[in-house]
Structures are given as C-alpha cells and as structure tokens.
C-alpha cells in the first residue's frame, strides 16, 4: 500500500475518539452571553472548555480603589480601549476594543489592572454591559 499511505492511518483513526471539544455546545449559540445565562438558569448544558494555560490573557479586571488616575495605561494601550474619565479621575475600559495585549497591566504603577481567565466575550453588541469595565 505504499502509494496510499493514508489508508492505514484512516483505519486507525476510526478507533479513536474525536479530537474536537464541542465547546460550548454541539451547535454554536448566536450569543455566548445569552447562552451562559440559560446555562446558569439550568435551561442549557455547557460542554466545559479546554483549560486556559497559566498566565492566559483574558478579560481585563480593574481595581478602582487603588487607581490614582495617572493615565499611564491610556498612554500604552495600542487600541485606545481605555478612557480616562476627567470627573472621577478613574478609567473606563471598552473591552470590545481591547486586544488583550496586557500592556496596561504591565504598566500600571499600582497593580490595579489584571488579566483574568475569562474569554467568553463574543457577542453582537459591542456596548454590552459585560464589555465595559470601570
């Protein structure tokens, strides 16, 4: 069978389990956020995701209390996702614009910014509450 080397491989494959993890469900829901809500209320079943690696860069988390409003994070954000609010001297992060580079978290002198493991952010509404961190 030297001219058809794939045949034995395919036969072996028949015995194996599929490699794909059917996350979050067998069919992709239109809105992941809504799907998660229905999972929370017990209406849908979630296939757990593959674990994220250590130091994964997911949705940003902001500790408002320590923030001094220095604006350094704004200065290094490549996608202009951070806005410095002049009234409160605090920041607002538009997660839909964030590119998860983690540069702001490296920059913050107060350590008030952190990347979490959360990655389920896909939605059609870019101004969803879940996507605005302040």
């Amino acid at each position: 069978m030297s001219s058809l080397p794939m045949i034995p491989e395919l036969l072996r494959q028949l015995m194996r389990k599929p490699a794909t993890n059917l996350f979050p469900a067998k069919y992709l829901p239109p809105s992941v956020t809504e799907f998660l809500q229905s999972v929370a209320s017990g209406k849908a079943h979630l296939t757990p995701p593959v674990e994220t690696p250590p130091r994964f860069r997911g949705k940003i988390e902001y500790q408002k209390d320590g923030c001094i409003g220095c604006g350094l994070c704004v200065k290094v954000c490549p996608s202009h996702a951070i806005e410095l609010l002049p009234e409160t001297k605090r920041i607002r992060i538009w997660v839909d614009q964030c590119i998860f580079c983690s540069q702001c978290t490296d920059m913050c002198p107060k350590g008030g910014l952190r990347m979490t493991d959360e990655f389920l952010l896909a939605t059609e509404d870019r101004y969803e509450e879940n996507l605005i961190v302040e």
Partner: peptide
C-alpha cells in the same frame, strides 16, 4: 498549545517588546 503556554495566547502572542521579550 506550546505557543499559548509560552506567550499567553494562541495567535496574537504579544511576547516581543522593544528591547527584549515580555516573558
């Protein structure tokens, strides 16, 4: 998977910074 483990992301690695690497 290895790239993700080394850099923190599968596709947009964000590992290089001017002057060296970040991790």
């Amino acid at each position: 998977d290895v790239i993700e483990n080394l850099t923190g992301n599968r596709v947009n690695y964000g590992i290089v910074q001017v002057g060296g690497v970040r991790r």
